[in-house]
Computed example of a mutant assay.
Amino acid sequence: MEYKVQPVLWQDASEQLKTLRKAVYVLEWRLPESTEFDKRDSKAVHVLLFSEDNTPVATGRLTRGGEIGRIAVLPSHRNLTVYKTLFAALLRLADMHNIDKIHLQSELGSVDYHREKGFQPVGPVFMEAGIAMQKMVCQRQNFSYPDVRHIH
């Protein structure tokens, strides 16, 4: 299947972005909606992936500080092609914005995996929506596509 990629701003596509993220994080993962949306949404660049019938099936965001996050992929589209397409689009945006360090937030169980991929922990462990998380960073040129098992 071929996917269409579209970089979007929150102001222009918030309804589509909210729908995808609510489906994954609020309904599927049962996380509080209040933790899913934050002030950084309006300042970040987002990516939407559309299926062949023009239905939004995935999204992710890149903040001005270089953090990739809020990856939400509908269950029926969780495959390597979607994840690679989504991350490639986010990395192109990082290149366009001259971002040289990629940041992410990792669940504690995935920290070792990300270390093997060149990420280093930054700061203390913190809680987000009841989940222990660790901020991590790596040089843009060292970023490799994540294993899908460590995202959903």
Rank of each mutant, 00 (worst) to 15 (best):
V5I: 14
P7F: 04
P7K: 06
L9H: 15
W10G: 09
W10L: 04
W10A: 13
D12I: 10
S14K: 13
E15C: 15
E15M: 11
Q16E: 14
Q16Y: 03
Q16I: 09
L17H: 12
L17N: 12
L20K: 01
L20P: 02
R21V: 04
K22Y: 05
V26M: 15
V26E: 10
V26K: 02
W29N: 05
W29T: 09
W29E: 15
R30H: 13
R30A: 09
L31F: 00
T35E: 13
E36Q: 00
F37I: 00
K39N: 07
R40L: 14
D41I: 10
S42A: 14
S42G: 10
A44W: 04
A44Y: 07
A44R: 00
V45D: 10
V45A: 07
H46T: 08
H46V: 12
L48M: 07
L48C: 01
E52R: 01
E52Q: 02
D53N: 13
N54L: 08
N54K: 08
N54A: 13
T59F: 01
R61P: 03
R61L: 14
L62Y: 12
L62V: 04
G65Q: 11
E67G: 00
G69M: 09
G69Y: 13
R70Q: 04
I71Y: 02
V73A: 03
S76D: 14
S76N: 10
R78M: 10
N79E: 10
T81P: 05
T81S: 14
T85R: 06
L86I: 02
A88G: 12
A88Q: 08
A89H: 08
L90H: 01
L91P: 03
R92M: 06
M96L: 15
M96Y: 12
M96E: 15
M96K: 12
H97N: 15
N98S: 05
K101M: 11
I102C: 00
H103Q: 11
Q105V: 10
Q105I: 03
E107D: 11
L108A: 15
L108R: 09
G109K: 14
S110Y: 13
D112A: 11
Y113L: 07
R115S: 13
R115N: 10
R115D: 08
E116V: 11
G118K: 10
G118F: 10
Q120G: 03
Q120L: 15
Q120H: 09
Q120D: 02
P121E: 05
F126C: 07
M127A: 08
E128L: 15
E128S: 08
E128Y: 09
E128A: 07
A129C: 06
A129W: 03
I131S: 01
A132N: 07
A132I: 05
M133V: 08
K135M: 14
V137H: 04
V137A: 05
V137C: 14
R140A: 13
Q141P: 01
N142F: 03
N142V: 04
F143Y: 13
P146F: 04
P146T: 06
V148H: 00
